[in-house]
Computed example of a mutant assay.
Amino acid sequence: MINNAPEVLRYAAFTTDPAGGNPAGVVLDATGLDAAAQLAIAAGLGYSETAFLTPGPTERSFAVRYFSPLAEVPFCGHATVATAVALADRIGPGELLFQTGAGPVPVSVTAGPDALEATLTSVEPHVLPIPQADVAEALTLLGWAAADLDPSLPARIAYAGARHLVLAAATRERLADLAYDFDGLARFMTDRDLTTLQLVWRESVGVFHVRNPFPVGGVVEDPATGAAAAAFGAYLRTLGETTPDAVLTLHQGHDLGRPGRLRVELRAGDARVRVTGAAVAIPADVA
């Protein structure tokens, strides 16, 4: 039992609609809460992640921990966006610094056309090859065939705070039809320290549709995934599939009925990736 339970805020990230995007829990003052208490709050809320803040050395810096219903994760993009906007609602827009399990993450909050928007700057990313045997096993667990993949976007592990296996579908129909072995994929991902699978379909040079199975977090699918979006930006740059300066649009959550939009920015001379999205508070009467 948790005594003096803190206030848990609910925000939807990468959307201006409280019923869209990806909901996150936000605890703005987690002082005195140990890991077990934080995990219990995250599990009780049931969102893919809940962020827990403690004050940092300066007024607008914070230590942040992220918990899924099953475990702590080093970094979560949508909960970062949600938390930054929740803070801005109280202390005003501007620059923030989050000390995360993956490293320092600067976040800037500004007024968007319909809601506050937060831009996170990832830790330095990297992209790694993956054995073909692992790709084949992942496809089997997804119920996909090798012919379902887009050969122009080969499988890779991409990291920008958390590890994601990027698999590109050849068609939008393949991406839309997602029914996988939950327990089997969770074991596969745990063995390879993967946070999600980043399943993508390329609509055009700068527009992608994405889905993110998240069984290791106890969630079938993450509706909008900022950490994976940052990793995907690094993936495209490494493969030479984008220009040094580029802005990408990722559509996610449409197949779940929670549409969201993620803006990914690459800058020449800076390895880090910027991810921008709006966020709004979720009223008590919205599920």
Score class of each variant (00 low, 15 high):
212 N>P: 00
70 L>R: 13
216 V>C: 08
279 A>D: 05
170 A>L: 12
281 A>S: 14
147 A>Y: 02
144 W>M: 06
100 T>V: 14
141 L>E: 04
131 P>K: 01
36 A>D: 10
185 L>G: 05
249 T>I: 15
205 V>A: 15
187 R>I: 13
269 G>T: 03
103 G>F: 10
53 L>S: 06
179 A>E: 10
220 V>Q: 11
18 P>V: 05
271 A>M: 08
186 A>C: 10
251 H>E: 15
157 I>F: 06
229 A>G: 09
220 V>G: 08
153 L>N: 00
4 N>F: 12
112 G>R: 03
222 D>V: 03
22 N>R: 04
52 F>I: 04
276 T>V: 00
10 R>V: 12
245 D>G: 06
98 F>S: 02
191 D>C: 04
171 T>F: 07
197 L>W: 00
91 I>L: 14
65 R>M: 08
199 L>Q: 00
251 H>I: 14
263 R>E: 15
190 T>G: 15
192 R>D: 14
249 T>W: 09
129 P>I: 03
184 G>D: 11
117 E>T: 14
54 T>V: 13
189 M>N: 05
76 C>M: 11
34 D>S: 03
121 T>Q: 09
238 T>Y: 03
97 L>K: 07
195 T>M: 12
91 I>C: 14
94 G>N: 06
110 T>F: 13
121 T>H: 10
265 E>Y: 07
73 V>A: 10
65 R>F: 11
189 M>R: 02
275 V>L: 12
116 L>C: 03
4 N>Y: 10
73 V>S: 05
139 L>W: 00
188 F>W: 06
205 V>R: 14
63 A>T: 10
185 L>T: 04
196 T>E: 08
276 T>Q: 02
239 L>G: 05
152 S>C: 13
75 F>G: 00
46 G>A: 10
49 E>Q: 04
235 Y>L: 07
177 D>R: 14
261 R>F: 12
115 A>Y: 05
158 A>R: 01
233 G>E: 04
201 W>Q: 00
268 A>I: 01
109 V>G: 11
24 A>P: 00
105 V>F: 14
222 D>K: 06
207 V>E: 14
145 A>G: 15
198 Q>T: 09
242 T>Q: 04
272 R>C: 01
174 R>S: 12
227 A>Q: 04
273 V>A: 07
7 E>L: 14
183 D>H: 11
16 T>N: 15
72 E>D: 10
258 R>I: 13
